[in-house]
Amino acid sequence: MKSKELVEKLKSSIGTERFDYHFDSEKDELRIEHRTLKQGMTIHLSDILAKYHTIKEKAIEEVVYTIDQTFAAMESEKNDVIYDLANIYPIIRSTSFPLKSKEGSPFITTEHTAETRVYYALDLGKTYRIIDEKMLEKLNVSEHQIRDAARFSIKKLATNTKKDEVAGNIFYFLNENDGYDASRILNESFLKEMSTKIEGDMTVSVPHQDVLIIGDIRNEVGYDVLAQMTMHFFTVGMVPITSLSFVYENGELEPIFILAKNKPNKEQDKK
């Protein structure tokens, strides 16, 4: 599929009644503008096409859903829909994720690891809006209240996992598809509970927004499996975070670099 064909598919799926479309073939981008709101979003077509080669029509379905929900959130905000602190959740993003909104307002963030950063989101039902400084006044809350509310909210979310065994290693997958799967990495009680089940090395992975993987790595093959697994999820995820995994030990998360058929030497890495 070529970019021009993808643009036509998106226009057909989203519709032209409320939106204007501007295709920039040089940058391989599609700008979608809401006629009433006078707001829009830019889609990087190459990213969607890369996923299309792997997951086919699902890649298009995912981006159409994201676009629909993003504009629905904009419409809700325009209509002055009021939300309280119970609707605020933390979200995990890569450290390369922008620190400001497109309007230039800084996002509310908290440092997490060398690979990840915590942002905060106002839940709007089927989507959410990342909170920036400009929104604080509208929500009538402080940064401290935002962080406290998010810490409380993440503990309320379900932590059901599916278990799989590969080459003598155990992997637990959390995939509730609520937009906050990766955010469960911030639920310390959940991580401590999972650590009681682990016989080998405990790893935690958040390759994209909609999955969290906990590994019970019992042999060297397990690290190879983990590396391949996280890279796969990272490349197909709608909101990729990091292909690196973390060792969880004594309540701390430490990024690990996995070399094929070699178990990471944490002591050597610290030298």
Rank of each mutant, 00 (worst) to 15 (best):
H53W: 07
H44K: 15
S94P: 01
P264Y: 11
D269A: 14
T36P: 00
I32E: 07
L37V: 12
T110S: 15
D216L: 13
L174I: 05
K100T: 11
V64H: 00
V141L: 00
P207F: 02
A73S: 14
L99M: 01
F19G: 03
T110C: 06
L157C: 01
A149T: 11
S101L: 05
F152L: 08
L186T: 01
N87Q: 15
Y120G: 00
K138T: 07
E137R: 14
S101Y: 04
K156L: 02
L136V: 07
A227E: 07
S25E: 15
A167D: 13
F246K: 04
K100M: 04
I108M: 08
D24N: 14
L136Y: 03
T242V: 03
S25V: 15
P98Q: 07
E61Y: 03
T116H: 05
S76K: 14
E143T: 15
Q39N: 08
V225C: 06
F233M: 12
D132S: 12
P207V: 02
N250G: 10
V206N: 10
A86Y: 00
D181A: 04
T109V: 12
A86F: 02
I48M: 09
N250Y: 05
T230S: 10
R184D: 04
E220S: 13
A50L: 12
E165C: 10
L122V: 02
E103G: 09
A72Q: 11
P264Q: 13
G215D: 14
E5I: 06
M231S: 06
L30G: 05
P255V: 09
D148I: 06
E57L: 07
